[in-house]
Simulated assay, not measured.
Amino acid sequence: MTKIDIISGFLGAGKTTLIKKLIEEAFQGEKLMIIENEFGEIGIDGGFLNNSGIEITEMNSGCICCSLVGDFGVALKEALDKYSPERIIIEPSGVGKLSDVIKAIENIKSEVDIKLNSFTAVVDAVKCKMYMDNFGEFFNNQIENANTIVLSRTQKISEEKLEVCVSQIREHNSFATIITTNWDEINGKQILSAMEREESLEKELLVEVKNNKSENHQHSEECCCNNHKNHTKEECECDNHEHHIDCNCNDHNHAHHTHDHECGCGHDHHSHDHHHADEVFTSWGMETPKKFSKVEINNILKTLSESSDYGIILRAKGIIPCSDGGWINFDLVPGEYEVREGIADYTGRLCVIGTNLNKNEIEELFDV
């Protein structure tokens, strides 16, 4: 039986980085295959993974969750027949709905020998609130349907903001395992173990408490009303108290309590009630042999990050030859970008994803 692991995550959350970590530290010795589905015409992430020696199938003409559900089923069956992998990792588009990917797999489970092993959402802890507010239909769907939520970039925020992030996620998913530890501090086997756990620690403790119930155990630690008489939270008679155990914000009226947005892209965002990614998001992609200097690509990314002339840029990435020698990989998410040395690919590839993109202006900016 082939295990199926879905690793979802909004644009730029770190899905590919997590997959690389799992390949190097957790999946060694397994016959592994990756099915990638990128939104847009140009596949980038496959290039980052090609050197892993893993069989990779890319689907770039649309979303698994939208128009390719039928084709996805065919592709999965062909992969099983041709390669007989022990495990398949499915990396859906960042703007895909995890619920639809799960459904697509469930629809063919009776026809093939597979087990839906885990369904994970990678969440950027820095931008969680902003994406939750502005792209909730897609972003929240991934959180709500995951059995494990892996927070990325937790080392970039304070402990207080991390607690707020977890609290916000818990409002959408109260049962998933949430990994909050910086990825550099844990190995891939620990992450995989959390992904595959059927019971969370919370559930284990609840079972333990029920099995060891005693009349003298009053749970007074759950009350934060500063009146520590022995009573349960249900028995508390303090006014206007909702007993939010995990909240340290000193404002217990959460119906009106909001936190600052982490968006640094300089644009006003609005929620949209659409059903398909291609109704909300657009992409521009290009394959090119053109060489860029590090200075040039930094200037381009700075412009994309700061100017509103190109639309609302949510993600940009690329693998391109460098005029100074070697190759460059770059990544951009709202408010920040990174340029680093990379490994050569069959040609240079560029991709920009966002809303209301001005594709002509973007093409002129890259001068391709």
Results as ranks from 00 to 15, higher is better:
Leu22Met: 06
Cys322Arg: 03
Asn50Ile: 03
Gly96Arg: 00
Ala125Phe: 00
Leu205Glu: 09
Glu111Lys: 15
Gly43Ala: 15
Asp260Glu: 15
Val209Asp: 07
Ala75Gly: 05
Cys238His: 00
Phe366Lys: 11
Arg170Ala: 01
Asn230Pro: 06
Leu205His: 07
Glu160Pro: 00
Ser220Thr: 12
Thr288Glu: 05
Ile297Gly: 05
Val166Gly: 01
Val166Cys: 04
Gly311Arg: 12
Phe10Ile: 06
Phe138His: 10
Leu314Asn: 13
Gly94His: 08
His272Trp: 01
Leu304Ile: 11
Ile7Cys: 10
Ser110Gln: 12
Arg87Gly: 11
His231Asn: 01
Thr232Met: 01
Val150Pro: 02
His274Arg: 07
Asp278Ala: 09
Asp71Arg: 03
Thr258Asp: 12
Gly53Val: 01
Lys161Trp: 03
Ser200Leu: 09
Asp246His: 02
Tyr337Met: 08
Phe175Asn: 14
Asn50Pro: 00
Leu301Lys: 08
Arg349Gly: 03
Phe10Thr: 09
Leu314Phe: 14
Cys223Glu: 01
Phe48Gln: 07
Asp100Cys: 02
Trp183Val: 02
Asn107Phe: 08
Val295Asn: 07
Leu357His: 10
Thr355Cys: 14
Gly325Val: 02
Val166Phe: 03
Ile102Arg: 10
Gly136Tyr: 10
Leu192Lys: 06
Ala316Trp: 09
Gly325Arg: 06
Ser308Asn: 15
Leu11Arg: 06
Tyr310Pro: 12
Ala255Pro: 00
Gly326Gln: 02
Ala26Trp: 05
Val280Gly: 08
Cys128His: 11
Ala176Lys: 07
Val126Met: 09
Cys63Met: 05
Ala255Trp: 04
Tyr346Phe: 12
Lys3Thr: 03
Asp246Met: 00
Glu199Ala: 05
Glu196Tyr: 11
Phe39Asp: 03
Trp327Leu: 02
Ser305Arg: 11
Glu237His: 00
Ser152Asp: 06
Ser99Val: 00
Thr57Ser: 10
Met33Ser: 15
Asp278Phe: 10
His257Ala: 08
Gly94Phe: 08
Ile105Trp: 07
Thr288Gly: 10
Asp345Ile: 01
Ser214Gly: 05
Ile186His: 09
Cys247Lys: 02
Gly136Glu: 09
Ala194Leu: 05
Glu361Ile: 13
Asp367Pro: 06
Met1Thr: 07
Asn299Tyr: 03
Ile157Lys: 02
Glu208Asn: 03
Ser158Glu: 01
Met286Leu: 14
Ile89Arg: 14
Val209Tyr: 08
Glu91Cys: 03
Asn248Asp: 00
Thr177Pro: 04
Ile34Val: 14
Cys63Asn: 10
Gln168Lys: 08
Asp239Val: 06
Ile343Thr: 04
Ile353Arg: 08
Gly335Cys: 07
Cys238Tyr: 00
Leu116Gln: 15
Lys129Phe: 07
Leu11Ile: 10
Thr154Ser: 06
Glu24Asp: 08
Ile320Glu: 02
Cys225Lys: 02
Glu41Gln: 11
Tyr337Lys: 05
Val368Glu: 12
Leu205Ser: 04
Glu279Ile: 07
Val333Gln: 04
Glu55Trp: 04
Ala316Thr: 15
His261Thr: 15
Gly9Trp: 06
Cys224Lys: 09
Leu350Phe: 15
Phe48Cys: 01
Gln155Asn: 13
Phe27Asn: 11
Phe135Ala: 13
Lys127His: 12
Lys156Phe: 08
Ser67Glu: 02
Asp81Ser: 13
Ser167Asn: 10
Thr16Ser: 13
Val166Thr: 02
Ile313His: 14
Arg153Glu: 05
Glu306Leu: 15
Asn360His: 13
Lys115Gly: 15
Leu162Pro: 01
Ile4Asn: 12
